[in-house]
């Protein structure tokens, strides 16, 4: 599914990056917001619509939040943005809490899937996978080939009712 943030959703997510993530991730905000779009594109349509509606509610209800000075959430300065998010995190209904948690999860996923963050953590799985894949083939090639052959050796569960169908090449 192709999905792109509206300008409002993107602005709101940008404003939430410093709230959810450590300062080390501030420079990655554009990439984080873009990654959230990829994840939202994979969500079921109804779920995504509900999330977008929730984000819209989060943004507009900030106007009625007394400390916010009648500003929308994406317009709040950092300290008030944090306080407003906390008011939802511990909000009066499960819907408030789930929305804060859900959007936080999307942002956290995007941040720590970023190659720069993973490199900073020393997380290097691709190199490890390459190394052990090569070693497996070198050391155990014969066993691997034997299993692959066994997968197509006849071993019928019951006497065949008729000969297996000739392979129909697509």
């Amino acid at each position: 599914m192709t999905y792109a943030h509206s300008p409002l959703t993107a602005a709101l997510l940008h404003s939430l990056v410093p709230v959810v993530l450590p300062p080390e991730a501030n420079d990655l905000a554009d990439d984080v917001v873009a990654h959230v779009a990829l994840t939202m594109g994979a969500l079921p349509t109804n779920f995504r619509r509900a999330l977008i509606t929730g984000l819209y509610g989060y943004d507009t209800l900030a106007v009625a939040w007394a400390p916010g000075g009648r500003r929308r959430a994406h317009q709040l300065p950092a300290d008030l943005a944090e306080a407003y998010y906390v008011s939802w995190e511990h909000g009066p209904t499960p819907a408030h809490q789930q929305l804060a948690k859900g959007v936080g999860q999307l942002i956290k996923l995007a941040c720590y899937e970023h190659p720069a963050m993973q490199a900073a953590l020393g997380y290097t799985p691709a190199a490890w996978i390459d190394k052990v894949t090569r070693r497996r083939l070198e050391v155990y090639g014969a066993d691997i080939a034997r299993q692959e052959r066994s997968l197509i050796e006849p071993d019928p569960l019951r006497p065949p009712i008729k000969a297996p169908r000739a392979r129909e090449v697509v």
């Binding site: 450590p22 956290k108 953590l121 997380y123």
Partner: peptide
């Protein structure tokens, strides 16, 4: 589990999240 999914399914955020994740290895 990879860092992104660990972070996503962990409760802390902000600096507390960083404190958890910087010891990922």
């Amino acid at each position: 589990i990879p860092p992104g999914i660990l972070a996503m399914t962990s409760h802390p955020r902000g600096a507390a999240l960083h404190a958890l994740m910087q010891d990922y290895d």
